[in-house]
Each structure stands twice: as structure tokens, then as C-alpha cells.
Nucleic acid binder design. Structure first.
Length: 248
DNA sequence: AGCGTGGGATGAGATGGTTG
DNA sequence: CAACCATCTCATCCCACGCT
């Protein structure tokens, strides 16, 4: 899910589970977050600062038909639920990550793109559907344009890298292109230098052996197994484990 | 003399707790 | 739910001091 908050603030959020707040708590949480975001100012030294939001500010600025004391009670409840916090005893409240998530998930509402924009984006993604790198670049570009802010896109990552497929491709002489595909869709490529030149058929045999032995396993599981391998297969396996360990 | 720095005093603003 | 009070922290001001 993608949402924007105020000028230049882009938040990428996942689903969060949170029991429902009372309508008044939802109102106050929403006001705190909007006020906090809009309070950003540039100081004389060029730094950007935001102000914690106090109960009095909320009552006065939004003409709430409640006393500051009542607002404080609700703010305290929102803080108990982890949606707000405050930097020190006498400071106003600031939203926590969970507060932002709840706001985006439950309070902002979704804004659909226009049919033209949807068609354009679908067409662009159709063009690059098989290339993960291009997909990521396009996704960040589309996000940045739609939100009017900076956008960062990362591929979903599994908690631990798992082996999916290995391909060894003969290039020239003893140089071999090593292509490792992980279960999360990421692709690792490196050049290997062999002790002696090998044919593509020999390399395919090594790939097939390791693909059969390693499919779906983590680096830790591979390390723990005792495998009867040739010197070359053992070398390639060591490289696989090394790359997967770095990917974790 | 002018400037920068550090420490103390004070006021503003916010909180939590208590009471009606 | 609102009002009041004690408490806390931050920002600001003022002053003393040291350096150039």
C-alpha cells in the first residue's frame, strides 16, 4: 500500500492489525498526525524541524468542543496503545510508526488514480513484466510521479535467502558466468575463474547436480549437510553459500 | 572593546494526578 | 468530563568570564 502525507512525505506501509479506536480517538489521532506533519518549519540554520502537538493547540486550532483535559486523556490512551509518544514529560505528542500506519490504513481513505493513469501504468508494467530490475526502476518512477515526492522501492525479501536455481555459463577460457537465483526472486551474478577450462556440457552437469541437491535450502542448511561432491562442485557450492550468506 | 561560551534564573507550556 | 494544582522540561535572557 502506498500513501502520501503532506508535502513530500511518502510512506510505504504494510497491513497492521489494530483493534478499532473510538470515533473521537480516531479524530484526535488524525488531527495530531496532520498537525505534526504541517508543523514542519525551516530554521534559520536551514534545518527542518517539526513541533510536538499539544492538547491546547488541538482545541484552539480545530475548534474542538472538548476541553484540553479531555484531549489529554484521549492522548494518553492513544499513547498507551503505542500510536503516539512524547519526547519528554512536558512535550506535546508525536506519532509513532504504528500511529502513522493506523492513520494510513484506517483514516486517510484511498484515492484512485484516473482511468488514464491506470491504463498508462498497466501498459508500462506489461512492457517490462519479465525484468525485475526494470520493474523496480519503473515502480519507483511511477511512485515518484504519482506522489510528487521521492520514492524508494525495494523487492520483497524472505527472512532467509533460499536457493532456487544455479546456472553456470561458459564465457571464454577458464572464465565462467555464475548465475544464482534465490526464492525471493533476486538474481546474483558473478564471474568464476576455473583451474581448467570446461565445456558447457560439463558446467551444465555441475549445475544440475547442485540444483538437485540444494533446491529450497538456506545457506545454513546447506552448510550443515555432508555432500559427496567433486572438487569443482565443492568450489561452486562454497561460492553459493558465500553469496547466500551475504544476501541474508 | 568586541565577541563567543557557559551557567544560573525565569517564564511558558505541557503533563499527570486529584477532585467535584 | 472539566478544573485545578504540582511538577517537569525547554527556551530564552542575563551575566560572568576568557580570548582576541
Amino acid at each position: 500500500m502506498i500513501s502520501t502525507l503532506g508535502k513530500g512525505v511518502l510512506i510505504l506501509v504494510g497491513r497492521c492489525s489494530m483493534s478499532d479506536l473510538s470515533p473521537r480517538q480516531q479524530l484526535i489521532l488524525g488531527l495530531v498526525i496532520r498537525e505534526y506533519i504541517s508543523s514542519e518549519i525551516e530554521t534559520e540554520d536551514g534545518a527542518r524541524r517539526v513541533q510536538p502537538v499539544g492538547s491546547k493547540v488541538l482545541v484552539e486550532r480545530y475548534n474542538l468542543d472538548l476541553s484540553p483535559a479531555t484531549i489529554r486523556n484521549e492522548l494518553a490512551r492513544l499513547e498507551e496503545r503505542g500510536l503516539l509518544t512524547h519526547p519528554h514529560t512536558s512535550a506535546g505528542r508525536i506519532p509513532t510508526d504504528a500511529g502513522y500506519r493506523y492513520f494510513v490504513e484506517s483514516l486517510m481513505g484511498d484515492e484512485d488514480l484516473s482511468p488514464d493513469e491506470q491504463r498508462t501504468i498497466q501498459h508500462q508494467f506489461h512492457q517490462v513484466r519479465l525484468d525485475l530490475d526494470q520493474w523496480m526502476r519503473l515502480a519507483s518512477s511511477v511512485l515518484a510521479r504519482a506522489s510528487g515526492g521521492a520514492a524508494i522501492v525495494t523487492a520483497p525479501r524472505a527472512p532467509q535467502a533460499r536457493f532456487k536455481h544455479l546456472q553456470l555459463i561458459s564465457t571464454q577460457g577458464r572464465l565462467v558466468l555464475f548465475v544464482l537465483v534465490l526464492m525471493d526472486g533476486s538474481v546474483k551474478q558473478e564471474m568464476l575463474t576455473l583451474a581448467d577450462p570446461l565445456s558447457q556440457a560439463d558446467l551444465d552437469a555441475v549445475s544440475a547436480t547442485l540444483n538437485g541437491l540444494l533446491s529450497g535450502r538456506t545457506a545454513e542448511e546447506i552448510r550443515a549437510r555432508r555432500l559427496d561432491l567433486s572438487t569443482l562442485e565443492a568450489d561452486v557450492l562454497a561460492r553459493v553459500v558465500d553469496i547466500m550468506s551475504r544476501a541474508d
